[in-house]
């Protein structure tokens, strides 16, 4: 069977690039949200999809990145995009500190701890911890980002910022997936004991996966803060983490195209159902069940890894 995937991906990219020229501001904004969810989903995919860690607290790292940007920007007037690495760094360091003692927890125990993490973060933000998070009203007046003197403010402008960042993410994470690191993560996901036995330091790799995911979520938080100019704790609640969790699982664990499709479905589908008004989430829930029943591994599960058979030896080794 001929492999049509490159054609499909190319067509998708062209369509997406042209979209802001044909759609109105509302739909471009929907696409922007989808893009942000895609970036977040891809970052969670490293942790949940590749390392197989049940992490349902990703919104916490997203919040840390967004709040780092908001606080530094409103206090010291440092341009927003310069803060992107700092936001990532803060989220990453916090992830390292938090994950170190809990990384050995198994499956569902890790799940509830990460849920706890997102709740603790939200409550800390609501209670105006250290007096810098603005309580339940949040922080407003975050400045618009600028690139070479060009001020990004309209949805179309953000479209290119967000999807540009998403493209970079896809490229880097694709490389990561096929690296020694990515293969090690998959091994420990499939069989932790065997991975440990083959000399993979599982705790170390899990921790790195956690930190990489958190850094990326922090940077996505930076873009979110720039886009909204107002952030409040309610944007980072438990439900947000659940949405990210669903994006990865619905699309296909460990599959980049799957996660992006998942972002389109979870963030975009409820918009398409607007005509059903209040029943739209009801239909959405039913569709989620149906999709999982018909595609149990997610809609676009990753293809099994393939390696060229060794050239020497001949005979049976040929594939």
């Amino acid at each position: 069977m001929k492999d049509y995937r490159p054609v499909v991906y190319a067509a998708f990219c062209v369509l997406l690039l042209l979209a802001p020229f044909f759609l109105n501001a509302y739909w471009v904004d929907v696409l922007n949200n989808v893009g942000l969810y895609a970036i977040l989903g891809l970052s969670l995919n490293i942790i949940l999809g590749h390392a197989g860690l049940f992490h349902m607290g990703h919104a916490a790292f997203y919040a840390m990145g967004a709040y780092t940007t908001a606080i530094i920007n409103t206090t010291y007037q440092i341009p927003v995009l310069w803060l992107m690495p700092i936001s990532g760094l803060v989220a990453g360091v916090l992830a390292l500190v938090i994950a170190r003692p809990i990384i050995h927890l198994r499956g569902d125990y890790l799940l509830i701890v990460t849920i706890g993490l997102v709740e603790i973060t939200r409550i800390a933000l609501v209670n105006n911890i250290f007096g810098i998070t603005g309580g339940s009203n949040g922080i407003f007046g975050i400045s618009r980002p600028e690139i070479f003197g060009f001020r990004i403010r309209r949805p179309e402008h953000f479209f290119f910022l967000i999807w540009g960042f998403a493209a970079v993410t896809v490229f880097l994470f694709h490389r990561l997936e096929n690296s020694r690191f990515g293969r090690a993560l998959n091994y420990l996901r499939e069989d932790e004991t065997a991975a440990e036995g083959s000399g993979i330091n599982t705790a170390h790799y899990k921790l790195i996966a956690f930190v990489v995911g958190a850094v990326w979520a922090g940077m996505a938080g930076n873009i979110f803060a720039a886009k909204m100019t107002i952030i409040a704790p309610e944007s980072f609640n438990f439900w947000e983490s659940v949405i990210l969790f669903m994006i990865v699982l619905l699309g296909g664990r460990g599959s980049i195209p799957g996660v992006i499709l998942g972002a389109f479905l979870i963030a975009g589908l409820p918009e398409l159902f607007r005509q059903f008004a209040s029943a739209r989430m009801l239909i959405f829930g039913a569709i989620m069940i149906a999709m999982m029943i018909f595609r149990t591994e997610g809609i676009l599960p990753p293809r099994p890894r393939r390696y060229p058979a060794p050239a020497s030896g001949g005979g049976e080794g040929a594939s």
């Binding site: 569709i287 069940i289 999982m292």
Partner: peptide, 16 residues
Amino acid sequence: LSAVVSAMGASIFFQN
């Protein structure tokens, strides 16, 4: 984990 997504779908369905 597939069943977990189905469970979340059911939760959204019931709630709404």
